[in-house]
């Protein structure tokens, strides 16, 4: 497969896909909460551009509605809400120590390889322009999961969770030009409610343990204490 044989817009979509994957790695490594949220907004913006471009390449203009939803939710609303929360909880400058960052990075790189391997049967079916993008979106989902697992701060876990949603949305856009509209709206509604509930939870966790360090949520065990 020669990249140069693709049309220009398709090449741009591939470049955007690569940048989206890069932003996932940035999220994984980012230790300051405010920069983490900014990177997340950047990832949303890249997905917004990719969606708009896909809408024009394929002539599927309903994708523009999905793109607008992404712009509103992933670029403005969710990052805005999270910024507001970390200001109100006064943890804006907080820095998180990630245990063994190089190992986690290597693991994430392995996840990308794994995604390409898993996506092989799909890629054979698919059009040239979407071959790489499905594997990349799966990688974004898996790296999002890795963020949730490797971080201890509740805010960072939420960012990881939302980054998984980004990956899923990107997968739907590049493989099938988006899901049916009613499903897209349903998913957007769920994401919206989830963000609000996460905000509520931050305050509850803070009130109970005095920080957002989820490592300290360790009272429930299998054996009696």
């Amino acid at each position: 497969m020669l990249i140069a044989s693709l049309s220009l817009p398709e090449q741009v979509v591939l470049t955007l896909a690569a940048l989206i994957l890069l932003s996932s790695f940035l999220l994984l490594a980012q230790v300051r909460l405010d920069s983490l949220i900014n990177t997340f907004a950047l990832q949303g913006l890249l997905i917004f551009f990719a969606t708009v471009l896909m809408a024009f390449i394929a002539g599927k203009y309903h994708l523009l509605i999905s793109a607008a939803l992404t712009l509103f939710l992933k670029v403005f609303f969710i990052p805005g809400q999270l910024r507001l929360l970390i200001i109100r909880l006064n943890i804006r400058r907080e820095v998180e120590v990630i245990g063994n960052p190089s190992l986690i990075m290597l693991f994430a790189a392995a996840l990308v390889l794994f995604s390409y391997y898993v996506a092989l049967p799909i890629r054979e079916l698919s059009l040239l322009s979407t071959r790489n993008t499905i594997a990349i979106s799966l990688a974004v989902v898996l790296i999002g999961m890795l963020i949730v697992i490797s971080r201890r701060k509740a805010v960072a876990q939420v960012v990881g969770f939302m980054s998984m949603e980004n990956g899923l949305f990107f997968a739907a856009v590049v493989s099938t030009y988006g899901m049916p509209m009613v499903v897209e709206l349903g998913i957007a509604f769920d994401v919206l409610v989830a963000v609000i509930l996460f905000g509520v939870f931050f305050f509850h966790i803070r009130a109970e343990i005095g920080s957002l360090d989820t490592d300290r949520l360790n009272h429930l065990t299998e054996v009696e204490k």
Binding site: F198, F201, E208, L217, H219
Partner: peptide, 20 residues
Amino acid sequence: THESIEAGWKYFIICGVGIS
């Protein structure tokens, strides 16, 4: 309570990630 918030958070994160 501490336990119920912990259970709620665990439920939210694990089920959310799983169902993704």
